[in-house]
Amino acid sequence: MSKVMKETGLPYTASKKTLGRRLKNNYIGWLFILIAAAGISLFYFYPMLRALLLSFQSGMGANLEYVGLDNYVRLFSDPTFIAALTNTFIYLLIQVPVMIVLALFFSVLLNDATLKFKGFFRTAIFLPCVTSLVAYAVIFKYLFGVDGLINKFLMNLSLISEPLDWLSDPLLAKFTIIAAITWRWTGYNMIFYLSALQNVDRSMYEAAKIDGASSLQQFFYITVPMLKPIILFTSIISTIGTLQLFDEVMNITNGGPGNATLSISMYIYNLSFEYSPDFGYAATVSYVIVILVVLLSLLQFKVAGDDK
């Protein structure tokens, strides 16, 4: 009888008393969830809906009127939006893969049982994660300044003859943003891979070695397939993070030079709070991020999940 109870979740003979108790517990269960559910509805779902409505409106400040799909049409002929979208994709296509490969590489090196100073290396590479985004962004801005340490260092090594203007050159400025994000997040991704690697059976590597597989082959035929779920997970969160990139761009280059480093999030901020406010169009741009988050997550699932 108790087995039946466990499996169905229902008492074998529901007396009035237990039924009452069950209803009471259901009701209390709701109370526990209530604040959270109400809060998420109010601060996430309701604004999402409002943003959707806003995206069909236009006008300055509070004087909004419905304009149908005008805002969405405007996207295609808005050079600033296209610049922000392009930049965001450049960050995505270069920064995320570079970071993930680096993080994988570090974790494989650190997973070696015979390696000395493992704790030190791991802590050091993880350390950038303790900084606030604004704080490290400002530091990178100074390091990459014309009279910053990066230039001094490169000149001392005679790699460059005169200081590079990292933050005022469109290409170098993008590089600086990518370098900064990579510095901040590689260690973060690394710890995911390190903990996943601990679950990989070492005997697989032993067997591979006996079969004469090189380290590179072991990496591609054992490590990568074994870590596939976690690589998928980290690439999705990195993609979502990059699509929302704001703090670094705002504080390192302020979107410049021109709009060479502008991100979509920063463009939304500018549309709402820097230029004469156009909340409607800003909401339209923000829905582009929503759509991209959904599409890219689905795409990554599809690419990674083809054999499952």
Binding site: M48, A51, L243, S265, S272, F279, A282, A283, S286, S297
Partner: peptide, 23 residues
């Protein structure tokens, strides 16, 4: 309900920032 609430983790902050500000 739990899955619905989890869905909110996918919402980019930039998308709800303006309605929140107006709220």
């Amino acid at each position: 309900i739990f899955n619905l609430l989890l869905l909110s983790m996918m919402i980019p902050f930039a998308a709800i920032m303006i309605p929140l500000y107006r709220l």
